[in-house]
Structure formats: structure tokens, C-alpha cells
């Protein structure tokens, strides 16, 4: 006590005084810091707004640019789609949220309208092609990555849309809740290579399957899942199976 500022009421007064001063100073400093931060944020926001409004068209139209932009966003830990409900300025400024949701709706449209013909399984390239057609944009404007990202935004709907890797760099999108076993994935992969046609003989020759295994896999897809069509007039094998989702349809 003595060392700090003497004795008595005056000392107490003085101590209070310095305490206040320190408080004020600290307030000033943090206020300055907050202000600085605010101005930085404002700058950042302005810069982003500028960037967004300058490049909005490119972001929406050019897939390569969009990809680069999305990568940049994820590097700095920002989600360009962060909910249009809250903090929506980001999505609003870019209109990218709408873009992505719109794409989602169109993906659903294509998946549902082709379901009767492909059993709820569509090849990624075909989906991209049909969505592009629906939007009346050139092929290449919408990429697989865009579709994959949009399908993620559909997840909360619980409709079971899922991207499946069938191997060989081929992806398919499943719009019905159906479990695919490993053998069916193999059949799908072969069908992809063969424009849709698969036979028991093919599976036996290429995969070393027994006739029973080949027949079971194909019959399951045909009868149980409705993912295959039967051709009883096949020239080579008498009977062949066709996987409509692996067939390329020109409308």
C-alpha cells in the first residue's frame, strides 16, 4: 500500500484515478481496434462487392472461373452459398445461391422425367447434357462439379439423390433410394463401355464370373430393380440385357 501511493484518502483517490485512466485507455485502444477491424471488413466487403459485381457474369457463365472462385472461397474459409436465409448478402451479391438452387431444381427435373426410362439411375454426362439442354446453354457451361455441388444442396430434402462412382472415371446419379451391390456396379461399368448392352457371356469372359453369378446379377437388375431391359432377339447371345441409363439417347 505504502509503495503504491502513500497512505490515506488521497492515496485511495489517486489509485482510483489511475484505474479510471487505464480503463479509458484500454477502451480507446479496443475501440480503435474494433474500428480498424470494421474498416477492414468494410474494405473487404467493398472489394468483394466490387469483385462480385465485376465478375458476376463470369462466375455464373464460365465454369473454369466459377471453379477458381469457389476454390478461392474455400481457401479463405468462406462458403459462397452460405444460406440465402441468413448472412445472405453473399449469395445475394453473387446470385450464386439462386444459381445453384436453380440448377438443383433442374437436376431433379431431369432425374424425375427420365426415371421411367432409366429406373432412377442416370449417367453423369447424360445428366449434364440434359440439364444444359433444359437451360438452353452450350455444353460445357455446366460442369460435373457444378452438378455434384448442387446435389449436395439437395441433401436436406432427403430425397436420396446421390452421386455414385462406378469406376473407370464414370459417375452416375441415383435419384431413387435403392441399394446397389458390388456386382451391379460392375454391370453398370461394363454397360457404360458398351453403350448399354450387357450379356451373361460378357461378364463371364471379362470378369471371370460363374454363369450363375452373372445371371443373378442381371436378373436382379431386370426383375427386382427395373434397371435393365431384356432383349430376347439378340443376334450374338440370344438374350441380352440393356441398361437404359447407360444408353445414349438423342431426343
Amino acid at each position: 500500500m505504502h509503495r503504491l501511493g502513500g497512505v490515506g484518502l488521497a492515496a485511495f483517490e489517486r489509485q482510483q484515478q489511475s484505474q479510471r485512466s487505464f480503463n479509458e485507455l484500454s477502451n480507446e485502444i479496443s475501440q480503435a481496434q474494433v474500428q480498424h477491424l470494421h474498416s477492414q471488413l468494410d474494405q473487404f466487403r467493398t472489394a468483394l462487392l466490387g469483385f462480385a459485381s465485376t465478375h458476376r457474369e463470369s462466375i455464373r457463365k464460365d465454369p473454369a472461373f466459377r471453379l477458381a472462385f469457389q476454390r478461392m472461397c474455400s481457401t479463405i474459409g468462406v462458403d459462397p452459398l452460405a444460406g440465402p436465409r441468413k448472412g445472405g448478402w453473399w449469395a445475394e451479391v453473387l446470385n450464386l445461391g439462386d444459381w445453384q438452387y436453380e440448377l438443383g431444381v433442374q437436376i431433379v427435373d431431369v432425374c424425375v422425367s427420365t426415371r421411367e426410362r432409366n429406373g432412377g439411375l442416370i449417367e453423369m454426362g447424360e445428366l449434364v447434357r440434359l440439364v444444359s439442354k433444359l437451360r438452353a446453354v452450350d455444353e460445357g457451361t455446366i460442369t460435373e462439379e457444378d452438378v455434384v455441388r448442387s446435389i449436395k444442396t439437395l441433401r436436406p430434402l432427403g430425397a436420396g439423390y446421390e452421386v455414385i462412382d462406378v469406376g473407370g472415371g464414370k459417375k452416375m446419379v441415383r435419384s431413387v433410394v435403392k441399394e446397389l451391390d458390388a456386382d451391379q456396379a460392375v454391370v453398370l461399368a461394363i454397360a457404360q463401355e458398351e453403350s448399354g448392352r450387357v450379356s451373361e457371356e460378357m461378364l463371364m469372359a471379362r470378369k471371370g464370373w460363374t454363369p450363375e453369378r452373372a445371371k443373378a446379377a442381371l436378373e436382379n437388375m431386370l426383375l427386382r430393380d427395373g434397371l435393365a431391359w431384356l432383349d430376347a432377339q439378340d443376334e450374338a447371345n440370344g438374350v441380352a440385357y440393356w441398361i437404359p441409363s447407360a444408353m445414349h439417347w438423342d431426343e
Partner: peptide, 15 residues
């Protein structure tokens, strides 16, 4: 229509 060029269209489907 394009389905007419698909071979299995000419087979009665068991499913």
C-alpha cells in the same frame, strides 16, 4: 421416337 431404335423395345418385358 428414339426408343424405336433400342433393341429391347421389341421384347416383352418381364418387369
Amino acid at each position: 421416337p428414339s426408343i424405336h431404335s433400342a433393341p429391347p423395345f421389341f421384347t416383352q418385358q418381364p418387369n
